[in-house]
Simulated assay, not measured.
Amino acid sequence: MDPIWMANNTDLPDLALLDRNWQTFLVILYTTTAIISLASNIVTIVVLVKGERLSSELWKYLINLSVADISMAVFCIPFTYTMFMLGHWVFPVWLCPIVQFTQVCSVLISVYTLTLIGIDRYFAILYPFQTSSYLKSHKLWLVCAIWMVSIGVGLIPYYKTEAVRFAYGNDTYYDCREVWDEESGKKYTLFIFIITFALPIFILTFVYTSICCYILRHNTPGNPDRVRDLAQWKLKIKVVKMLITIVILFAVCWLPIHIFNIMVWFFPPTSINTSRTLYMTYVFSYFFSHFLSMSHSFINPFVYGFMSENFKSSLRRLVTRMWSKRKHMDTELDKYSASHQTQELTSLRINTL
């Protein structure tokens, strides 16, 4: 919702799009989402760094993915829904372009790290000998390239974003917005759609479809064994389901917000204040699509980490090791306390004598 347009074209008594009850619900919902995203990604990083690096081929990518998702939880979730919900920018003016810049960077880093993981698995499974050494030796460079490209693209909204001052009633507010003319805004919206959704979903669909076909066609070497072959087939089906889940979740989480943005730019709801039904449909469509896109930041750790048996085993071993270390420290502390008490008691007896 454009607050400046609302200020000039609507009879609503307040800029806030929803009443206090809905605002409370959204605050709880988004705060919970941010906390879960932050906690799950921190746990993922700790397990990958402190654990046994359960996947030496992917751990750098997974850490990079978690860092990007943490950035989304910190810089995307609290600011975007708040401004839309309240109808104006309530944070410091200087923070406005920084938030827009960080949001674009976080989304690009997260999306293309997912894409890079898919490409890495594609070559590792289908062409293990031709490309494995090259990919292993260039993982850090590829991660750095993702960051450099993301920062470069993020500079576009940074320089095009400003906190626009406007009057509503007897008060003055700010609207944090990217300042585009109509034609440039449409082109930029399509550009963001292509680089953050269309291109990644095409690559992920291709590589994971190829992997699924290869897995289902590939037979276990050696003599036929009914029990072994059945177990291998179940494992293949499990892997295929996980790969399909990755693509579906990516599409479900990100497609609605892109559709919403394209609809707003190409079919702007200029008569929204004439119909309460249209107004509420517009508002809830935004929050529904926005929440799905933000929820992807806590879905990633569960798909790539907590759904993996190796990851869960490493997590259990790490927790067990930390618990054993804690118990050992408590035991040593008890021994020290007992020894110290004995020394004090002996000293007291000597002094008494």
Rank of each mutant, 00 (worst) to 15 (best):
M1A: 13
D2R: 00
N8H: 14
T10Q: 05
D11C: 15
L15W: 05
L17S: 05
L18I: 04
D19A: 08
T31Y: 10
T33V: 13
I36W: 01
S40Y: 03
N41Q: 10
V46A: 01
V47P: 01
V47G: 04
W59V: 12
M85G: 12
M85W: 13
L86R: 08
W89T: 00
W94V: 11
Q100G: 11
V104E: 01
V104M: 05
I109Y: 01
S110G: 12
L116W: 02
I119D: 03
I125Q: 00
L126I: 11
I146E: 04
W147N: 09
P157G: 01
V164F: 03
G169Q: 12
T172M: 10
Y173K: 02
C176G: 09
C176E: 04
Y188A: 11
T189I: 06
F191K: 00
F193L: 11
F193H: 02
I201G: 03
F202A: 12
V207S: 13
Y208V: 01
Y214D: 08
N219F: 02
Q232W: 04
K236C: 03
T245Y: 03
I246M: 04
C253N: 06
I257P: 00
I259N: 01
M263P: 00
V264M: 14
F266M: 00
S271W: 07
N273D: 13
S275P: 04
R276H: 14
T277Q: 11
L278G: 15
L278V: 07
Y279S: 06
M280T: 14
H290S: 11
S297L: 10
F298R: 04
V303H: 06
E309W: 04
S324L: 14
K327A: 14
D334C: 09
Y336S: 09
H340G: 06
L345F: 11
R349K: 13
N351H: 01
